[in-house]
Design a protein around this nucleic acid. Structure first.
Lengths: 171, 171
DNA sequence: TGTATCTCCGATACATCTTGTCGGATATAG
DNA sequence: CTATATCCGACAAGATGTATCGGAGATACA
């Protein structure tokens, strides 16, 4: 499959929600789960992975929660996919044991596909979360959260876009 | 997952094999399967789909087999994926029933992800099979096949490439 | 004309991965 | 001390992909 997993969808929904939250506030996992009707425990793990990769920060304790650790300009879709799905893929031989493919010499597609894979990754790494959130925040959500103490907000950077084409697969 | 399925891998292997075959010859499914040690029946179905989508042509009968129906410049990776995997994906809501997502109004990621999906498709549609086969054919394979009668070879076209990036997901 | 050998096609068991759930540990505000 | 949040590993359920089987249609060749 070339598509994203449900987990990544959930993660992106959560990131958009966090991006829409007022600066200085933390959001509980349960709030996001209830907003989009997602299983709380599953979303919790996803947020843990996002926190581990450094794009969101966590605050433990009763008044705790999550908040964005970077600007939406500084979080790429590729990073989100990598954090949640563990990332590398495209060619099948490379996923499990490399040596299991007992005919590496006969495999005529491995090396070229690795190059193509790199191009797909490059594309996803150029697209940032701000392209999903948009310039203006939705601002239609209610937050019953608290003030955050550890301010680890980093400065924003810029991104550009490229790539266009003439024919589509189906869409 | 962002990766290709095993079926697509098999399909690409078969296409490369067919591309390496001398013009005017047909190749049996079994030959390709034995060359790469793939299950014959599964590969047969994959080749049927590729034939149905028009990128390879079939010849029935004892001396039958498959041959490329277009130039390797005229077969894109996106088309191969679409032919084998049925294509559309990326965002999860769009895969099964559209109306099942009973909170379309709250879904903040559907529309932006559709745009991103189109970009990925564009990229895959710009990459042709000739980038996998290379300019010169491998020419290290033995063909025990026969002459083809129905010559449905179409003229070749040209393709260009674009897209580059600075940071990668992991590779 | 029969037979062998291809492509074709639907249905179905098997494997693997994803999704979802459970139980318990750690940290902190009140 | 207690309630409530993040954490973390392990496992059951479900979905998806992979592989297999049985049989039908087409054609070269004896």
């Amino acid at each position: 499959m070339i598509g994203l997993s449900k987990r990544t969808d959930y993660g992106l929904l959560a990131l958009v929600y966090l991006a829409a939250a007022p600066v200085g506030r933390v959001v509980r996992t349960r709030d996001i789960a209830e907003q989009h009707d997602l299983p709380v425990e599953l979303l919790a793990k996803i947020l843990q992975r996002l926190a581990k990769s450094g794009m969101i920060a966590s605050t433990p304790g009763p008044t705790g929660g999550y908040h964005l650790a970077r600007s939406t300009d500084d979080i790429s879709i590729g990073q989100v996919v990598a954090a949640i799905e563990g990332a590398p893929a495209l060619i099948h031989c490379e996923r499990t044991d490399h040596n299991r493919c007992n005919q590496l010499d006969k495999c005529t597609i491995r090396k070229p596909l690795t190059r193509i894979q790199a191009r797909v990754y490059d594309l996803l790494n150029l697209i940032t979360l701000s392209e999903i959130t948009g310039p203006e925040p939705p601002d239609e959500l209610v937050f019953q959260s608290q003030i955050v103490r550890s301010n680890t907000i980093k400065p924003a950077t810029a991104r550009d876009r490229s790539v266009r084409g003439e024919e589509a697969i189906r869409a």
